[in-house]
């Protein structure tokens, strides 16, 4: 009987633990978001986080986007050539980039950069009593440290992804015209003729959600870290891993939602 019950108990404990974690993170997010509607507002800190995400992540996201566009053209060209459909290459590239690859790849890149840096910075503040110090200095740490970062994540990512979309399509166009002999004007026409407003918007909505998730996991893991340098290291790893996984999982959920419409 024990043999049967114990594995079940372990699974039960795991599920309960997971539920508790998700609940805690959700409460954390709710509290932080509620601070966005109550003064004082920390515009300076919001701007700093916004620049960190939208501007300083630009090089790595741009490179990712350009190369992805380039590879996508090569791959789809060889694939489509088998059934004489190379005319669809431009459509495939622009749709996959705006709807899918732009937000997801930018999200993963930003997850590595931003959630790690948020977790490390806030985690260090936690283990060196700086967060307690904020409280004693008439400043709510959720309002000061977390809320501006979440807002910056949700607003900066769409901007970043918009740039990534353009660069990705350009990367594809570059290879198509220079290497595969497409005529530039036909390729571009095919790109824009089939592109719909919704394709871009759904990608930007995803981007906003991913940006929020990245900032949330970074701040949450940092905020709850304990145990010195080792704890901060662990918090950083957890932040990057969970935000990456959540991006991929939520990507499915969001695509399903948009697709169902």
């Amino acid at each position: 009987m024990d043999l049967v019950l114990n594995p079940l108990a372990a699974v039960g404990r795991g599920v309960l633990g997971a539920c508790r974690t998700v609940g805690n993170a959700a409460l954390f997010a709710l509290e932080a978001v509620s601070h966005l509607f109550r003064p004082p507002f920390y515009g300076r800190l919001f701007l700093k986080a916004f620049l960190e995400i939208a501007y300083f992540s630009l090089p790595v996201v741009a490179l990712t986007a350009v190369f992805t566009g380039m590879v996508l053209v090569l791959q789809s060209y060889t694939g489509f050539a088998r059934f004489n459909a190379t005319g669809a290459v431009a459509n495939l590239v622009v749709l996959s980039i705006t709807r899918e690859l732009g937000p997801v790849l930018a999200g993963l890149m930003v997850a590595g950069r931003i959630s790690a840096s948020f977790a490390a910075e806030i985690g260090t503040m936690r283990v060196t009593d700086q967060i307690d110090a904020l409280t004693t200095l008439s400043t709510n740490p959720m309002k000061y440290l977390v809320a501006p970062r979440l807002l910056a994540g949700a607003l900066a990512m769409p901007l970043l992804v918009l740039v990534a979309d353009v660069l990705g399509v350009m990367g594809g166009w570059l290879i198509a015209t220079l290497k595969l002999g497409f005529v530039s004007s036909t390729y571009l026409k095919a790109t824009f003729d089939f592109l719909q407003f919704d394709d871009v918007v759904s990608g930007l909505v995803k981007a906003s959600v991913f940006g929020f998730i990245v900032a949330l996991m970074g701040t949450w893991c940092g905020y709850n870290s304990k145990g010195g340098a080792q704890g901060v290291g662990g918090a950083t790893t957890t932040a990057v891993v969970t935000s990456s996984i959540l991006i991929l999982a939520l990507d499915y959920v969001l695509t399903e939602m948009f697709f169902a419409q």
């Binding site: 009593d129 700086q130 307690d132 110090a133 004693t136 008439s138 709510n140």
Partner: peptide
């Protein structure tokens, strides 16, 4: 929180904002 406005604290390790 209002009470905290009247209280000051020196932390053992300083806890300055770097």
């Amino acid at each position: 929180e209002a009470l905290g406005d009247r209280i000051g604290m020196l932390f053992q390790n300083g806890a300055l904002f770097d």
